[in-house]
């Protein structure tokens, strides 16, 4: 029997045939939802082989390595309760963790609160850029809900929609987009002027189509101002929620887009790297989630003209939805994304 896990992290034993059946079902689910091509029989067998290897930790063959980018980079150490400064954390990532890229991030990982402390963040970026060699991102979340009342200036669409005030809810989101674009451009400009190589918009579209539109507009403005700025647009989910429902970018309706469609708009906006996300279903097995995630990501890679980095972490990219992602699943998902999904990075 093969010991693997469910999407909630619990162990489950399956026969090889059951593993294969679950991988196939996951692939079929992605094909049906995304209207994309399925994996080939060889690719499905490769995923089954990765799932069924007896080792706890698996890895890619020599030559199949890819690039790793990070979200909320410095926070990963801060959350562990280790009280060291951001430049030192970046030095650890570079020299101890073998990170391909670095990402500096403030503990309130959203653009709205960061705009108040941009000078302090510029200081951290400038100091870090002197003592590190690897490329340096600054990262934060667009986080559109922070612009809604009572915490922000705009009426709360989540309260207006249940009251049947559709037009008002849409107007409130459109107003929030304007505030968010200004903050994203302001913060990103500040950290780039201080010496970062680029900006990472993390968990884009967590609040749906309005947040995706805001991020694409901010990306467009930043590339017009700083053509050499590297911009990574990392998504929050596989499917853009139509919380507004009518918003577009470059004539394309944003609600309902899947990764292979999202990446085309990221390209048009000028993004350098697109971060594809596929959510983990905690009620299904790891093989099911792996088949599904790799199918979506492979379609995105094939549609893209820019590098695609799949999100592989807590609750995304087939990794179980737990605070301590198990290395058996993380290493298998990483290997599958590199060798079957043909990702440019993770």
């Amino acid at each position: 029997m093969i010991v693997t896990r469910m999407g909630d992290g619990s162990f489950v034993s399956m026969s090889e045939e059951e593993v294969k059946a679950d991988v196939r079902e996951g692939v079929e689910d992605a094909v049906k939802r995304g209207k994309i091509e399925p994996l080939s029989a060889d690719e499905i067998n490769h995923l089954v082989d990765i799932c069924c290897r007896p080792q706890k930790f698996v890895s890619v063959r020599h030559g199949n390595e890819l690039i790793l980018t990070y979200d909320s980079g410095t926070l990963k150490i801060t959350r562990l309760g280790i009280p060291i400064g951001m430049p030192q954390i970046m030095q650890l990532y570079e020299r101890a963790f073998a990170a391909d890229t670095l990402e500096l991030a403030y503990v309130h990982y959203s653009f709205k609160p960061i705009k108040m402390i941009v000078p302090e963040e510029q200081y951290a970026v400038a100091e870090t850029s002197l003592v590190t060699t690897a490329p340096l991102f600054y990262g934060a979340m667009p986080n559109l809900p922070l612009y809604t009342q009572p915490d922000g200036p705009c009426p709360n669409a989540a309260e207006l929609l249940p009251a049947g005030k559709i037009a008002e809810a849409r107007a409130a989101q459109e107003e929030a987009v304007e505030y968010a674009v200004k903050d994203m451009v302001f913060v990103a400009s500040g950290v780039y002027e201080a010496g970062s190589d680029g900006i990472d918009f993390d968990t884009t579209a967590a609040a749906g189509d309005a947040e995706f539109q805001a991020t694409l507009l901010a990306c467009e403005q930043l590339k017009a101002r700083y053509p050499d700025m590297a911009i990574e647009i990392g998504m929050a989910g596989e499917f853009v929620l139509g919380f507004h429902g009518q918003l577009t970018y470059d004539g394309v309706r944003l609600a309902g887009l899947y990764p292979h469609q999202q990446v085309k708009l990221a390209e048009k906006a000028g993004a350098s790297i697109f971060g594809a996300v596929v959510n983990t279903n905690s009620s299904r097995s790891f093989p099911w989630n792996l088949g599904r995630a790799v199918t979506f990501c492979k379609a995105c890679v094939e549609a893209a003209n820019i590098p695609v980095h799949a999100n592989v972490g807590m609750g995304v990219g087939a990794v179980p939805l737990v605070m301590t992602p198990p290395i058996d699943c993380v290493s298998r998902a990483s290997t599958a994304m590199a060798e079957v999904g043909k990702l440019d990075g993770l």
Binding site: F57, V58, S59, V60, N64, E65, L66, I67, L68, T69, Y93, E94, R95, F97, A98, A99, D100, T101, T133, A134, P135, D197, G198, A230, S272, I273, P307, V330, S331, R332, S334, T335, M337, A338, D344, G345, L346
Partner: peptide, 21 residues
Amino acid sequence: MHASGMGGIRTAGDLVARMQM
């Protein structure tokens, strides 16, 4: 680095990343 990363300045990961970015 883990299962699939290039390895940053331990190898040439930072340089390949720069070309992507």
